[in-house]
Design a protein around this nucleic acid. Structure first.
Lengths: 343, 343
DNA sequence: CCCCGATATGACAGCGCTGTCTTATTTTAA
DNA sequence: TTAAAATAAGACAGCGCTGTCATATCGGGG
């Protein structure tokens, strides 16, 4: 079996076959108006016969659209990014865009950023945490005039699309939930300080305690980096303390899973002896036992909304002044990792 | 603070500034020979001053390289794909390529495939399981003449780069490991039949039992789909049987985690009452407790090798006859989920 | 001293499209 | 009925590069 290399038909081939000018073919493929139905039919038929699809690069060069959307991430693994990727990919597919993923490590990998922005003309760029709060990146994007959407940003940027949840309120509510279950010694494992949401979640925790007259003890607040390992380390620290907390609120689920693992190793029963809650409703939350009570963040809807506001028909004012903004609803997902101390 | 939209300098701008022809600038940016050192310096300097980077689309249109590599996946989430993505992204970054991710759901999403292949000229395409074994995809790629690499393929395709592990041997060895620990009633949870590796792993399990004189019982082989949920379901089936197996070999870690969850719910101690092993050394393997004994598959090295063989300098015979092939070493990762019955 | 290959550079066309402008043919409003 | 507006289609240039071919210079070997 030998495969004949099919060389792609060009627009002018289609034009010839359909007996029209190239420009008319172009009009059809760009859904412009002012093309009669019969020519349109003829062109579509000819295109199908030749298996024609317009070349991305040529379109990008000649026109004002590249049909390329960028997704800039810090680290391409993890459940959060996977969700963003999946959702963005679906949206791109449906809207006829292609997704170019670029990794921008470390705050302000400016060299790579400039290189990428100069060499590809993106129709839009989606920024995921934590680089959605990297000023170097934001300014470079502004300077190059690319419409940008940020998912889960910390600070506001009115000229960019922004999609988020209220991390502060969510953490407040989760803490309150724990308090409502009779917990008073509630520890908190902080998130990666590079992520803007970390501060918000911490604030929510602190304020909730204060709001319920529970003293905030800095011994109960330990640093974390959003990783399983850092969750483990934080648990060790917490368990080394004089009095063990009755509940631990980890700023994300991966860390909560780390706590769970340490608890298990030490024979600490969860939830009877120790309650654990996380944040994000990451895939791990339902994979560990007991399943983690956590805050569900609708990442996929958020990414879809971001894309829609960025690239959607209304085309918004992304290009000029104000860009769209949306705050999505979070949801406390009660599972099996919290004990009711007042039972 | 207002941001001036920086319009990108073009090659002709650079040429003017450096006092040479565009072609010479082009030569410098393509590392062609026959450019004197002083002109090269002048050009590089001018380019830096103008912050010039050649346009991807123009290069793609005019030249024979697009600097775009495609990663075609079935489903963009999961630890396996994350690893492939991360590794490929790194390789692309280092080699100056950009990665376009495309989702090809369901066997032979031919419409989308053709659309994508016609509209973007890829310099290379990487296929992850299970679509690396989709004949429609393979043939379309052949027809369009794009050099292709397949990660973890089932059937051989001599004209494409191929990187894999020996799933059969690995499963054989893992089964043998269990047998060595004194297990005789070893159940097997099969993988998604769409994935070629599923058959191999199953074969390895069956042959190992046979090789050690242990009768193969089809009651102990239950279907699975590589998902946590299907692992749970398989566990329920297995636990409903008359005699519980002493060990369960799940064809991947996610399913093994599902088994673990069901065991925990039913109060079955792991590993003392039931041993569980998985495959892949997925992130979940170390997140659950007890951590899973599993087969580590060096996915990232494999993806890196695939990229190197595809796009590397030797440029290989990917374009003509034989393409590179590599079988990587797997490794049994012993953790805490297996009991020694002969202790 | 001349010819040859290696080295160095540029002119020019054109990749496959889209933007702009022009021309022609309706339709609508007044 | 007639000007103005909407509709329909094409000619043409050019996006920012690279391939090809032509040209020019240089250092040897014969």
């Amino acid at each position: 079996m030998s495969f004949v290399k099919t060389k792609n038909a060009t627009m002018s081939d289609v034009a010839k076959l359909a007996g029209v000018s190239m420009k008319t073919v172009s009009r059809v493929f760009n859904n412009e108006k002012y093309v009669s139905q019969d020519k349109k039919d003829k062109i579509l038929e000819a295109a199908a016969e030749l298996n024609f699809k317009p070349s991305l690069q040529a379109r990008g060069l000649a026109g004002h659209k590249s049909y390329i959307v960028g997704l800039f991430v810090d680290e391409p693994s993890g459940d959060y990014i996977s969700k963003v990727l999946r959702s963005t990919l679906r949206a791109c597919g449906e809207a006829g865009y292609h997704l170019v993923v670029e990794v921008l490590k470390e705050r302000g990998d400016e060299a790579k950023l400039r290189r990428v922005l100069n060499s590809i003309r993106f129709d839009g760029v989606v920024l995921s945490p934590p680089i959605c709060d990297d000023l170097v990146v934001l300014n470079a994007l502004r300077a190059s005039g690319v419409p940008t959407a940020r998912i889960g940003p910390g600070l506001d940027a009115p000229d960019m699309v922004q999609v988020q949840i209220d991390d502060y309120r969510a953490a407040y509510e989760m803490t309150e939930y724990l308090i409502g279950k009779g917990h008073k010694r509630i520890a908190f494992i902080k998130g990666d300080p590079n992520h803007a949401c970390s501060m918000e979640r911490e604030r929510g925790y602190v304020r909730a305690l204060q709001g319920h007259g529970i003293p905030v003890s800095y011994d109960l607040m330990v640093p974390g980096m959003f990783s399983f390992a850092s969750g483990r380390a934080a648990a060790e620290t917490l368990f080394a303390g004089a009095v063990r907390p009755t509940a631990i609120f980890a700023a994300n689920d991966e860390m909560a899973a780390g706590v769970l693992a340490v608890a298990r190793e030490r024979g600490i029963q969860v939830p009877s002896e120790l309650s654990i809650v996380g944040f994000d409703d990451d895939a791990v939350a339902t994979v560990v036992s007991p399943a983690l009570t956590t805050v569900r963040q609708p990442v996929e809807e958020m990414a879809a909304a971001a894309f829609e506001m960025l690239m959607g028909d209304e085309a918004d004012g992304v290009e000029d002044g104000q860009a769209g903004r949306r705050t999505h609803a979070y949801e406390i997902r009660v599972r099996e990792s919290v004990a009711d101390l007042k039972g």
